[in-house]
């Protein structure tokens, strides 16, 4: 049943005419001996927002972290299967993880600005990757990234104050700006609004929708409303399985699987 689901889910991508940016095949993740994910197959299409939803502990965050190999830094975490980024397996030994993470950026659940100035936070990525050579170039990248993150107007007069002095929502947008500054192709967001108030959340959601034009976005969220608002495609995870994936409208109005039905109508989760 799972196989047919993913098959049907994967099929329409040709119809939409959108390129598959990342493709997960038979992904399994183990923490020591415990299996956290069972044979996940999922396509992520370019310039779309893909939402991963499901009850807590279902493996959606774990899956997200496999997509830029952030699980590498966790002891005892092991993974099987393939994840392709533009037809290239990111777990291939020839792939450099540092370079991979520059192409697939990440925004975390809790805003985690570095204890540096706003400017240095944004400039950090371009500097380490050697994307900027002069002060002027750095200024330009910082401004552009902050503009894109919708933060420029609020902070342009205090770029050299500490990043931790901002409010929670601003901090999260700073983290998004920081991720954008590296010029990634894919941005992974792990419940980016869970620590924020509704107004800040609305701003970030708006921002996500705009970022879609330039980037491919995968977002983990525990809020179905959020998934419905920002995403084009939705994948439902349950107990380490990918139950169902499809267009957001379809998942929320006419799910194929009764577990999905149960979750979105609030019977569990």
């Amino acid at each position: 049943m799972l196989a047919t689901d993913t098959q049907t889910a994967a099929a329409p991508h040709a119809a939409h005419g959108k390129r598959v940016k990342m493709k997960a095949t038979e992904v399994e993740v183990y923490y020591s001996e415990k299996r956290a994910l069972n044979k996940i197959n999922l396509d992520v299409r370019e310039h779309e927002v893909t939402a991963l939803i499901g009850p807590s502990g279902c493996g959606k965050s774990t899956f997200l972290r496999t997509m830029n190999r952030m699980n590498d830094v966790i002891d005892g975490c092991r993974m099987a299967g393939k994840i392709l980024l533009d037809q290239q397996d990111i777990y291939d030994p020839n792939i450099d993880v540092v370079q991979l993470r520059a192409r697939v950026g990440m925004v975390f659940q809790k805003p985690n600005p570095f204890p540096k100035s706003i400017y240095d936070n944004v400039a950090y990525g371009p500097r380490i990757h050697g994307l900027v050579r002069s002060r002027e170039e750095t200024d330009a990248v910082v401004q552009k990234s902050l503009e894109r993150a919708g933060l420029w107007k609020e902070v342009k007069d205090r770029l050299h104050e500490g990043g931790t002095s901002l409010s929670g929502g601003q901090q999260q947008r700073l983290c998004i700006a920081r991720a954008i500054a590296v010029d990634p192709e894919v941005i992974l967001m792990d419940e980016p609004c869970s620590a924020l108030d509704p107004i800040a959340t609305a701003k970030i959601e708006e921002l996500i929708d705009e970022l879609r034009t330039n980037y491919t976005i995968v977002i983990v969220t525990h809020s179905m409303q959020q998934a419905a608002r920002v995403s084009q495609r939705t994948a439902f995870f349950h107990l380490g399985d990918l139950v169902e994936v499809g267009d957001t409208a379809q998942i929320f109005t006419n799910p194929n699987d009764e577990r999905t039905q149960g979750y979105i109508t609030g019977r569990f989760g």
């Binding site: 830094v73 975390f108 570095f114 380490i128």
Partner: peptide
């Protein structure tokens, strides 16, 4: 740990994370 993860997420190497994020912090 979230600061390290932030740096790794941007594609820092280990030593870059330590020298430019962890040590200043």
């Amino acid at each position: 740990q979230s600061l390290r993860h932030g740096a790794y997420g941007l594609g820092s190497t280990k030593s870059e994370t330590i020298r430019q994020v962890v040590l200043p912090a």
